[in-house]
Simulated scan of single mutants.
Amino acid sequence: MSESCNHDCSSCGSSCSSRTQPQSLLAQPHEGTHVKHVIAVVSGKGGVGKSLVTSLMAVQMRRHGFKTAILDADITGPSIPKSFGITGRATGDETGIFPVVTKTGIEVMSMNVLLEDAASPVVWRGPVISGAVKQFWTDVMWGDIDYMFVDMPPGTGDVPLTVFQSLPVDGILVVTSPQELVSMIVEKALKMSEMMNVPVLGLIENMSYFECPNCHERVEIYGPSRVDESAQKYGISHTAKLPIDPSFAAHCDKGDIEGYPADYLADTAKFLEGVLGK
């Protein structure tokens, strides 16, 4: 029954019942933008390496020959430009905004490339932040992109809801760490993805272990890994583990994440390519 009528539409022959069909909330990207796959990178809490995983995945897919992009949806805590050594500001014209391009050709849009001072805080309420994220999709001239990674803020608030409703998200990667209540975090992510009809593609455990540079023994500083156990419990087919590596921080501080030589997420990149295609 339509909200505007007070009878059983199915028995009266009226066409008002057609207005009850659900409307898509997907926002149209900028004219000329064609993004094949959108993957959201999420976490249950901050500080587990979500932005690091986002950066590494974009770099890895770029190394595989794909055109990649990062939409930094963490408006109040953007760190993507720092990792890539981006210091310039985004430009645009009357038709839209141009994303900033990294040294290897990864397109990036982040709040920090729009601010005159990157250290200025963004003190906005949720709806305004959500609107900015949506504009990163609708007003930015991305062009042709094979894989876009969305660096999500932690939790399940306004911004994740906006991303899942407005962007054609193909799936999510959940980032966790051994010292978390892994099962609870994964369960929250699963329930959120189920509500939004978005599949969980993989579970990535950051700070999983430390490898001694001398003897190469692996030490699980934060306790035994439970990522495979959690993945099996919740039916997640792919997992990956990132070590505690001082080189991560060094390359990010230098703005040279693209120059980091290790390829811990190479299998994840191949998995996404196999599941989603080129």
Rank of each mutant, 00 (worst) to 15 (best):
G157A: 06
M196P: 11
V169S: 10
F98C: 11
P243I: 00
K36H: 12
D139N: 15
G131L: 00
A27W: 04
E94S: 14
Q232N: 10
C5T: 15
G274N: 11
S18W: 05
E273Q: 00
W137G: 07
T91L: 07
P121W: 09
S193Q: 12
I75N: 04
D117R: 08
D151S: 12
V128C: 07
V169P: 05
F136E: 05
A58Q: 01
I244K: 02
K278I: 04
M57F: 07
A27N: 11
P81A: 08
V35T: 14
M196V: 09
Y147A: 06
K241T: 05
G13K: 07
D263N: 14
V101T: 15
Q23K: 14
S51T: 11
C252G: 12
S166I: 09
C12S: 08
R226V: 03
L25G: 04
K134R: 14
G65F: 01
I221Q: 12
D72Y: 09
T87M: 05
I257C: 10
G143V: 01
Y260L: 15
M152D: 01
K134M: 15
N214K: 13
A262N: 15
S193I: 12
E273G: 02
S55N: 01
K82V: 08
H37C: 08
D158Y: 11
L114K: 00
L272I: 10
G155C: 03
A132H: 02
T239A: 03
A119H: 10
G85Q: 01
V275H: 07
G77S: 02
F149E: 10
P168N: 11
T104Y: 01
E107S: 15
T104P: 03
V150D: 00
I129L: 15
P22I: 02
G47Q: 09
Y222M: 07
V140D: 12
L173S: 09
I221P: 12
Q23H: 10
T176F: 03
S4W: 06
A231I: 13
A231P: 03
D245W: 03
T104C: 05
A132Y: 02
G202K: 03
K233W: 10
A90P: 14
E258F: 02
P243M: 03
Y260H: 10
Y264I: 07
H34S: 13
A90G: 11
S83V: 08
V174L: 04
L114M: 10
A27G: 11
M61A: 13
V123W: 05
I236A: 05
K254R: 15
M195A: 13
K270F: 09
S193A: 15
M184C: 05
A249Q: 08
Y222W: 01
L276S: 00
L115W: 11
L115N: 07
K191W: 02
V159K: 09
L114S: 06
T76V: 13
V275T: 14
A132L: 04
E217Q: 13
S10Q: 07
E116I: 00
W137P: 06
Q28A: 14
F149P: 14
H34I: 12
F84K: 07
I244T: 06
E94G: 14
